[in-house]
Design a protein around this nucleic acid. Structure first.
Lengths: 134, 134
DNA sequence: TACATAATGGTATTTAAGTACCAGAATTAG
DNA sequence: CTAATTCTGGTACTTAAATACCATTATGTA
């Protein structure tokens, strides 16, 4: 079973977790709460939020009452931002056979994949955290 | 570095390899030739073509002069067919957090992912082997 | 019949993602 | 100041997918 679009559980958890953080703003939300709410491993969630924190998307506070808060307005955080932090940098698909391996003059996939990738890219960019807060 | 669209090297090799087979039709083409032409491991290519063979997309012949030939017209083989054989069955994306884990009432990703997935699906279906033969 | 060729299929290795564990540092509350 | 809480960061384990290896079986040719 395979998804056509590449979204790891980690990226999905990051988005869902950040929505929860945004909803509680300006209060802090801790990893334990997020893990329970999303039925995920706390260790995994903590790791993901460490990366979000290092990248400046959230701020973190230690100690009791500690946790995470958004570091910028929810309107300014897109799923693309999150995706790039969690999944690493995006390649706007060219042929998955790297160029050295392919002896066809014109890439078989060319237009098709690039168009779709751009489409996905734009869609990810348009998904903002603020979309999910009432 | 990550591709937005999920296409393994195996699926890509299958497509490229089948194009080569189609181009040589009705002659057989063997795995060694394909591997060289595509600069891939022969073992890997052989495995991929085993699956294509079992699924009836190609016929295989052993022995000297053996190899693979298409088992149906190039117009009737789409990249979708190939993808489903090599990658396993497609999930038209719903949320990558499985339902049990997600506590949001409406899937955060819903429309966006499903639309894109359908788009990819159609695109894959429209890519036929015959597109690549002169 | 013997030999070389080519697919087959089982198994093993590699890689990446997800997950778990734990000691350490910071911070709050009593 | 002490104790409890929470993030940090390093490491290790687990699992699944991708890839590689190899002995076997089938087949055409001389």
């Amino acid at each position: 079973m395979s998804h056509l679009i590449n979204i790891s559980e980690a990226a999905s958890l990051a988005l869902h977790g950040l929505v929860l953080v945004a909803q509680q703003s300006p209060n802090t939300v801790n990893a334990k709460y997020l893990a329970e709410k999303l039925d995920a491993s706390e260790a995994h969630l903590a790791k993901i939020f460490q990366r979000l924190s290092k990248s400046g998307l959230v701020r973190s506070f230690r100690g009791p009452t500690g946790g995470f808060v958004l570091n910028k307005p929810a309107e300014e955080i897109s799923f693309l931002d999150i995706y790039e932090i969690v999944e690493s940098k995006i390649i706007l698909n060219d042929c998955p056979l790297d160029k050295t391996g392919c002896t066809f003059e014109n890439c078989i996939f060319d237009d098709a994949l690039i168009n779709i990738s751009n489409n996905i890219y734009k869609t990810f960019k348009n998904i903002k955290l603020s979309n999910f807060i009432e």
